[in-house]
Nucleic acid binder design. Structure first.
Length: 152
DNA sequence: GCCAACGTTGGC
DNA sequence: GCCAACGTTGGC
């Protein structure tokens, strides 16, 4: 069982939106970055734990925990011409982009903000701080323990 | 809204 | 296959 961090913009889709989704579950789609895609496609497994990170807000930070309920399958949005994630170069015979399903586990009473993360020893090597733009990223077991302890 | 970081595209 | 131009992400 591995840990991951998935980013989302709360103005677009927040952890509250996840809670309010049917069965508190949603399709995590629209990933259009190869490095993130490779993690999703090759390494994210059913039952893996996912830290939900809110970006583009004040303050950005980790707001809760979800889990993977369905492993990678072709992201339908890539084949829908009206969808903002449509990719005309993706071939249905060999889909370029994948999605997974995630289910809400819990929302932290207090979010762990980015400034806090930067200060906590043990989190300073997180991919989040080194590769700011990656929207799907691995979290080590040690980092996960620290995050969960800090989140109460 | 600005700007740094960095991924992607396309000419050569 | 290099690299400049361009687009996007995301913190501030």
């Amino acid at each position: 069982m591995a840990y991951w961090l998935f980013k989302t913009e709360p103005d677009v889709f927040s952890i509250e939106d996840l809670v309010n989704s049917p069965k508190s579950t949603t399709r995590w789609d629209g990933i259009r970055n190869y490095q993130a895609r490779n993690f999703l496609r090759d390494q994210v497994k059913k039952g893996d734990q996912v830290f939900i990170y809110h970006s583009q807000c004040k303050p950005p930070g980790i707001v809760g925990l979800a889990k993977v309920t369905v492993t990678a399958y072709p992201d339908p949005a890539q084949f829908e011409p009206d969808n903002k994630y449509f990719d005309e170069r993706s071939n249905p015979e060999d889909p370029r982009w994948v999605a997974v399903d995630v289910q809400h586990v819990r929302t932290f009473k207090e979010a762990l903000s980015l400034p806090q993360i930067k200060q906590i020893p043990g989190l300073q090597q997180m991919v989040l701080l080194r590769q700011g733009r990656l929207s799907i990223q691995p979290v080590t077991d040690a980092e996960a323990k620290v995050i969960l302890a800090a989140a109460g």
